[in-house]
C-alpha cells in the first residue's frame, strides 16, 4: 500500500475537519505514531497487516456491497425472501461475510413502514455491506436523537415520512447488524441489477435516506 500517499492525503484533511482541537489532535497523532512503533518493535503487530486493514476498508469494502444486495432483492423474489428469512446466509451467498456482519438482519421498507438503524451505545454498523460508518452515524447528535425523535432526524436528512407510516428504529445493542432494504423507486421496471444498484445510497440502507429516483441519476449524469 502506498502509505506515503495516505500520509499526504490525510494531512490535507486533518485540519479543516476537526478545527479548534489542533493541539489536542497533534498530540494524539504523535501518541498514535509512537505506540505504532512500540507495538511493531515488540512484534505484536505487523506493518503489512496494518496496511492491508486500512486498504481493505478504504478501497474494497463499502456501501456498493450493500447496494448489490438490495438490487438483487429488488429483482429476484426468491433472493428477497431468503434475505428476509436469513440475511446472514443470503448476504454471504453474494460473497459478503465476516467482521461486524456475523449476524445480519434485513428489514424492508414498505408504504406502511420505514426502518432506520442506530447504535446508541457505540457505533455498531454492518461493515461487510456498508463499510465503516460515517462520522455522523457515530456522533452524539445522531446516537442520542434517533430513538427519541426519529422523524425530526429524518426531516434533517430531507426525508418526510407521513404520519400514517410507522417509523421503526433498530438500536443495535448486541452483535446483530441491520441492513435496511429501501423501497424500489417507480419507473425502474425492467432495469438490470447493475442499474438498480446505482439508485441505492448508503443512507437508504441506514434508513436516513430513500433510494434515488431515476430522475436523480439522470440529473447527476447531465451535470
Amino acid at each position: 500500500m502506498a502509505s506515503d500517499t495516505h500520509r499526504t492525503h490525510a494531512h490535507t484533511h486533518a485540519h479543516g475537519h476537526e478545527h479548534g482541537e489542533g493541539s489536542a489532535l497533534d498530540d494524539t497523532a504523535l501518541r498514535v505514531r509512537a505506540l505504532e512503533s512500540i507495538l511493531i518493535e515488540k512484534g505484536y503487530v505487523e506493518q503489512a497487516a496494518l496496511d492491508e486493514l486500512v486498504e481493505t476498508y478504504e478501497t474494497r469494502v463499502g456501501p456498493r456491497n450493500g447496494a448489490l444486495v438490495v438490487a438483487r432483492a429488488w429483482s429476484d423474489e426468491g433472493f428477497r425472501q431468503a434475505l428476509l428469512d436469513n440475511a446472514t446466509e443470503a448476504i454471504a451467498s453474494l460473497g459478503f461475510t465476516g467482521r461486524q456482519g456475523e449476524h445480519m438482519v434485513a428489514v424492508e421498507n414498505t408504504a406502511e413502514l420505514h426502518n432506520m438503524v442506530v447504535c446508541t451505545l457505540c457505533s455498531c454498523y454492518p461493515w461487510p455491506v456498508l463499510g465503516l460508518p460515517p462520522v455522523w452515524y457515530k456522533s452524539a447528535p445522531y446516537r442520542s436523537r434517533v430513538v427519541i425523535d426519529p422523524r425530526g432526524v429524518l426531516a434533517e436528512f430531507g426525508v418526510e415520512i407521513g404520519e400514517e407510516v410507522e417509523v421503526r428504529v433498530w438500536d443495535s445493542t448486541a452483535e446483530v447488524r441491520y441492513l435496511v432494504v429501501p423501497m424500489r423507486p417507480s419507473g425502474t421496471d425492467g432495469w438490470s441489477e447493475e442499474a438498480l444498484a446505482r439508485l441505492v445510497t448508503r443512507d437508504s440502507m441506514i434508513g436516513t435516506g430513500l433510494a434515488l429516483h431515476p430522475d436523480a441519476l439522470r440529473e447527476e449524469a447531465e451535470r
Binding site: 490525510a10 497523532a29 498514535v32 503487530v45 486493514l53
Partner: peptide
C-alpha cells in the same frame, strides 16, 4: 478516515 493517525489507530 480524516487523518493518517485515524488510519493507524483503527488498524492497531
Amino acid at each position: 478516515f480524516h487523518a493518517d493517525w485515524e488510519r493507524t489507530a483503527f488498524a492497531l
